[in-house]
Design a protein around this nucleic acid. Structure first.
Length: 480
RNA sequence: GACCCUAUCGUCCAGCGGUUAGGACACCGCCCUUUCACGGCAGUAACCGGGGUUCGAAUCCCCGUAGGGUCGCCA
C-alpha cells in the first residue's frame, strides 16, 4: 500500500492526505489492498434504546467499511451489568437490522454468551474480563499504572496530546485545570471492573480496529486513548470524530426528545432506506450535490474527507419529504406490506377484506403519502362499515346538495360496469343535466363516501369501494 | 473554572482568495388537477461581530461573541 504523504500544515490538503488510505481520485471504485484492510466498529452500550445519533455513527462506520471493502464489527459495551439486559441488546440489534446495517463480525444473538461470527471475539465486553485483567497487569508490571485505594490508575502523560483527526484535523489537547491537579485516571475500579476508556482501547487494539469513527463528544477523551495505545506500544487507530445531531432548536438531543430513538421511526411510518438516506445528509454531502441517493451510490460516494465539522440540527420536515420520495418509488408488494402494518397499528383490520380489495384500495394511495402513519386517516374509510361524517361534511350536505346527490345516486345505480371511467362520465353527465359544475357534485360525493374533504382520486376510490358499498354510503349520507 | 470543537438563507448542504453567494427542505405566488399529493414556473431568505493579511476575504490569521463537547471508581 502506498501511503500518501502527510501534509503537516493545517491546510486544505489535510482533507486529501490524511484521508483514509485509498486514492481519492477514483472515488467510486477503489478498494484498499488487503494488507491494509479497514476494520471499523460500532460499539454501543445497551441502554435500552438506540439514539438516532448512534444510529448515524453506526451508519457512517458501515458505509466506510462497505466503501473500502473493509470489515464492519459490532461490539457490545455491556460493562455496566446493572443496565445490561438481552432486551436492551435486542433494541440495538433490531435497530441495525432495520436500517440494513449488517455486521461482518459480532454477536448473532442478544445473549452475551451466545454465538457470534468473527475470530476476534468475544464481542461482548462482559465476556472479555480476562483480556482486561491481563492488560492491566501488563501496565502495572511496567510501572505505567499503579494501585490506589484498591483501584488501578493509569499514569497519564502530562504534555498536551496531539490527536490527528481525519475530520477535525490536528488537535492539540492540553490538560484542563482539574487534570493539572491529577492527570492520572482510573482504568480499573476497586471492585475489579474495568472502565470505559480502558476497555474501549483494549478492544480496539485486540480487534485490530484501523479507524475509529465516533461522535465528537469523544474528541477530548481521545487524548487518554492515544496515551493508552502508546503505553501498549502500538500506533493508535486513525480517528474520525463526526459532528453531533442536535434538536431543531439547537439543543442537545436527549432521550426524552421526540425522534431521539430509532424506534420512533420504526414505529411511525418511516421507510428505513429514507431514514438511512436522510441520516447521511447530516454532516455529509455527495460531491454531485444530489440528496436522494440509492444505497449503492451512497456506498460508492461516501467518504470521510467530506464530513463536516459542525453539528447539525435534525429537520423532521425534510425527513418526511425524503420518506415520501422513497414511498413513491417503493415496490408495490413492499408498499402493501408496510401499509397493512401501519393500518394494523392504528387499529384498522384489513384482514376482514379480500386481498384484492386491500391491494386495490392501497393502489389509490400509492405516491400520495409521506408517512405510512398518515395512511389510517387517509384511507381508513376503505376498511370501515360506517363512514363518520365530520362537521365540514355535514355542513356541505345542504338540502340542495342532497337533492343533487340523490340524482347522482340514482344515476350510479344504473351504471352496470362500475369503473372509474364510467363513474366519471356519469357524474359529468349528471352535473350537466343539473346545470352545475362538476365540483358541485364531486365534493358532497367525496364527503358521503369517505367523510373527508380530501383523499384518493374520487372515481377510483368509488370503483374500489364497489357498487354496493358506494350506494350504501350515498344512501347513508342522504339519510343523515 | 479549565480544555477542545464549531459558526453561509428558518433548517440541511455547496463554496477552498476574484461567483449576480448555488442547491434541497420549509414557506409564498401562479399553472396543472374532482380532492390531496406529484409535477412545472417564479419568489422571499444567509456569509455572527471587530480587527488584520491581500490589489481583492464567505474563503487565510487574531480577538470577541454564541453554540456544542469534555474534564467520574458513567458509557
Amino acid at each position: 500500500m502506498v501511503r500518501p504523504p502527510v501534509c503537516r500544515a493545517p491546510c486544505q490538503w489535510r482533507r486529501v492526505h490524511l484521508c483514509c488510505a485509498h486514492d481519492l481520485s477514483a472515488v467510486s471504485s477503489t478498494t484498499t489492498p488487503n494488507s491494509m484492510s479497514v476494520r471499523v466498529r460500532f460499539a454501543p452500550s445497551p441502554t435500552g434504546y438506540l439514539h438516532i445519533g448512534g444510529a448515524r455513527t453506526a451508519l457512517f462506520n458501515w458505509l466506510y467499511a462497505r466503501h473500502t471493502g473493509g470489515t464492519f464489527i459490532l461490539r457490545v459495551e455491556d460493562t455496566d451489568a446493572a443496565r445490561n439486559s438481552q432486551e436492551a441488546v435486542n433494541v440495538i440489534l433490531d435497530g441495525l437490522r432495520w436500517l440494513g446495517l449488517d455486521w461482518d463480525e459480532g454477536p448473532l444473538t442478544a445473549d452475551a454468551t451466545g454465538t457470534s461470527k468473527g475470530d476476534r471475539g468475544p464481542y461482548f465486553q462482559s465476556q472479555r474480563k480476562e483480556n482486561y485483567a491481563r492488560r492491566v497487569e501488563a501496565l502495572l508490571s511496567r510501572g505505567l499504572a499503579y494501585e490506589k485505594d484498591g483501584a488501578v490508575r493509569f499514569r497519564m502523560i502530562r504534555e498536551p496530546v496531539l490527536i490527528r483527526d481525519l475530520v477535525v484535523g490536528d488537535v492539540l489537547r492540553a490538560l484542563t485545570d482539574r487534570e493539572e491537579q491529577d492527570p492520572d485516571f482510573v482504568i480499573m475500579r476497586s471492585d475489579g471492573s474495568p472502565v470505559f476508556h480502558f476497555v474501549n482501547v483494549v478492544d480496539d487494539l485486540e480487534m485490530g480496529i484501523t479507524h475509529v469513527i465516533r461522535g465528537e463528544d469523544h474528541l477530548s477523551n481521545t487524548a487518554k486513548h492515544v496515551a493508552l495505545f502508546q503505553a501498549f506500544g502500538v500506533e493508535p487507530p486513525k480517528y474520525a470524530h463526526i459532528p453531533l445531531i442536535l434538536n431543531a432548536d439547537g439543543s442537545k438531543m436527549s432521550k426524552r426528545d421526540t425522534g431521539a430513538a430509532l424506534t420512533y421511526y420504526m414505529e411511525n411510518g418511516y421507510a428505513p432506506e429514507a431514514v438511512l438516506n436522510y441520516l447521511c445528509l447530516l454532516g455529509w454531502s455527495s460531491k454531485d450535490g444530489r440528496e436522494v441517493i440509492p444505497l449503492p451510490e451512497l456506498i460508492a460516494n461516501f467518504d470521510l474527507p467530506q464530513i463536516l465539522r459542525h453539528n447539525a440540527r435534525f429537520d423532521h420536515e425534510k425527513l418526511k419529504w425524503m420518506n415520501g420520495e422513497y414511498l413513491r418509488v417503493m415496490a408495490p408488494d413492499r408498499f402493501y406490506e408496510m401499509s397493512v402494518h401501519a393500518l394494523a397499528r392504528a387499529g384498522v383490520d384489513t384482514n376482514r377484506f379480500p386481498t384484492a380489495y386491500v391491494k386495490a384500495a392501497l393502489d389509490t394511495c400509492m405516491g400520495k403519502l409521506r408517512l405510512f402513519s398518515d395512511l389510517p386517516a387517509y384511507a381508513g374509510f376503505y376498511f370501515t362499515d360506517r363512514v363518520e361524517l365530520d362537521a365540514d361534511a355535514k355542513a356541505a350536505l345542504t338540502a340542495e346538495a342532497r337533492e343533487r346527490l340523490a340524482k347522482l345516486r340514482d344515476a350510479y345505480n344504473g351504471v352496470a360496469d362500475f369503473t372509474a371511467a364510467n363513474l366519471e362520465a356519469t357524474l359529468k353527465e349528471t352535473a350537466k343535466s343539473l346545470g352545475v359544475k362538476n365540483g358541485v357534485l364531486v365534493h358532497p360525493t367525496r364527503f358521503a363516501c369517505t367523510g373527508k374533504p380530501s383523499g384518493p382520486s374520487l372515481y377510483h376510490l368509488i370503483e374500489v369501494l364497489g357498487k354496493d358499498r358506494a350506494l350504501a354510503r350515498l344512501d347513508a349520507a342522504l339519510a343523515s
